[in-house]
Design a binder for these strands. Structure first.
Lengths: 313, 313
DNA sequence: GATGTCATTTGTCTTGGTCAAACAATGTAC
DNA sequence: GTACATTGTTTGACCAAGACAAATGACATC
């Protein structure tokens, strides 16, 4: 009651806004100085108190920036203008006019988790793991991510969806973890890439293909990847990149890693995040589509022994 | 090669030190001004570059602060003095028998994942879930984190360990997910807190206690937590905080959330990260130990109906 | 279409200062 | 001796205004 923060009252302190929006305190202050937005009140001690409305607007601006818009432009827009941008259908996305996809999405939107779970199991049994991942899960994840960035669904729905998928893959994988298999593949992401689902999907595909995945989880520094590859004696390192990851950073990281890895260790990179990488990187196999994973696998198997990993393209 | 940052070179920029030590940029600068430590070099542009040795010392100091020591005292100590304090096996730890803990730690260090997996399953069967989590897993996680910050093991070992635990909990939970149960508890963390293991442990404990957990995964903004709590009609929201999370931020976040949640929804906060929070927060149940979770549960069950959530303490 | 140059935008870092909350120490009543 | 109020010290978060490099966009050239 007597608390001075939050609710319809004065507003949130800058630290809370940083937590809620993901914008650093420095950024929040410099925007205020440069663009005159946001416009926080001050408490008795002169410290900023942000109105909840503006916090929501800031979160929306952050989302639009992740979609490629620049702050300078967004600041000139009013609430309606921002809303309008949210609605824009970017043709860059894989066309989502698939009716079934939209049906899945509606299950996510309505939190019908039981129906979702049932549908997942049914489709997996019907199509088999490989086709299930490629035809259903991957497009659906992309569609959910897109819907989220467009504010059609909230963080809550997105989290719930992710948790269900994670549970699905982990329970399925639990009953078929192999004791051996070739090739041995290390699965992880570079620092900054938090998404785990891509890794789980690849793990599932590798297991059904009788390979031996070593799941390391997300965000491993490059030198630790090298050490892990050596200790676990893997034949290949497979990284996953989501759309959020900057293509330039991804390319740089792959080049750095390639230089530090032994020449006979393959380096594969998958996920929507590698699609924008045009130029091939020497000794790195880019796999924008899941199908490419099978190609990499087949190529490795057809060329056993000391591949110098420079024989791709 | 041409990379100007990191590696044995001059030193790390302040942002990297913040990430690695968990000390804020503000704190790092104010320490330098007040205590004359640390003593970073400067690059051509006058920006701080911290020597790797000092970064390790800073991490050590942070660890000792988490154990209750005050910065002012620690700064007067030299390297040997810090080491001496570090070696003190603080009796605050609930460690059952140190010897077994060290044995487990050696399994982590040597990447003997199969032995680790076997040992986990054996101990869980032997002790039951509740004691397994409290006596084995929680101390072991703390010990691994400590060993990591002491540079006794690398990111690779730490990730592998986390993945094994995650797999263990998820497969175990998969076979006992309840259809109903009371109370219904939403499990998540605030933005900025990435650690999921705490949530999985709580989920496991809730399930064996015949409650109904709703796992949302990490990093949910507060307004989405509120929405999720309403839609999923939960009786309580349970947040988890690791030591990495600043106590001040945790307290602020809990206050923010408490104000936005309905009064009849309980708010519980667990994990090592809440230990340093001394002052009680109105309407929030702090659970620094796992045992406290059972207390919260028992209290809720003994007082059904419209608790106004102000009856704790 | 690829590549190079230049201008603008943008976020992070800098300094040095203020202040509330947390903590330790001391005094006082019971 | 213990409980509690009071005072003094420590500590980190916040503030302002400026500087600058890295990223981005625009435009010319090969």
């Amino acid at each position: 009651m007597t608390n001075s923060s939050v609710s319809s009252g004065p507003g949130l302190p800058i630290a809370s806004v940083e937590r809620e929006t993901g914008l650093s305190k420095d950024t929040l202050r410099v925007w205020e100085r440069r663009y005159g937005f946001p416009t926080p009140e001050r408490d008795v001690n002169g410290e900023r108190l942000y109105a909840p409305v503006q916090v929501r607007q800031l979160a929306q601006i952050k989302r639009l920036m992740d979609r490629g818009h620049r702050p300078g432009k967004l600041m000139t827009l009013d609430e309606a203008g921002l809303m309008a941008l949210d609605q824009v259908r970017s043709s860059a996305w894989p066309s989502p006019d698939d009716q079934q996809l939209e049906h899945w999405l509606s299950l996510v939107k309505t939190h019908d988790t039981e129906a979702l779970q049932r549908a997942f199991h049914r489709e997996m049994a019907k199509r088999g793991m490989a086709r299930f991942v490629q035809d259903i899960v991957a497009p659906l994840i992309a569609r959910v991510g897109e819907a989220w960035s467009r504010n059609e669904l909230g963080v809550f729905e997105e989290h719930l969806f992710s948790q269900h998928l994670e549970k699905l893959f982990r329970t399925t994988l639990a009953n078929m973890t192999p004791k051996s298999g070739d090739p041995r593949v290390l699965l992880t992401t570079l620092s900054g890439e938090e998404h785990t689902l891509g890794l789980l999907m690849v793990e599932a595909l590798l297991v059904v293909e009788d390979a031996y995945p070593v799941l390391l989880g997300p965000q491993t520094p490059i030198d630790e990847i090298v050490r892990a590859a050596q200790i676990k004696a893997v034949d290949a390192v497979c990284l996953s990149f989501s759309t959020a990851y900057s293509p330039a950073l991804a390319a740089q990281g792959l080049r750095d890693l390639r230089l530090m890895l032994p020449a006979d260790t393959q380096l594969w990179a998958g996920g929507y995040g590698v699609k924008p990488i045009r130029k091939a990187i020497d000794g790195v196999c880019l796999m924008p589509e899941f199908q490419d994973l099978f190609d990499c696998l087949a190529r490795w198997r057809s060329e056993p022994g000391g591949n110098t990993a420079d024989d791709l393209k």
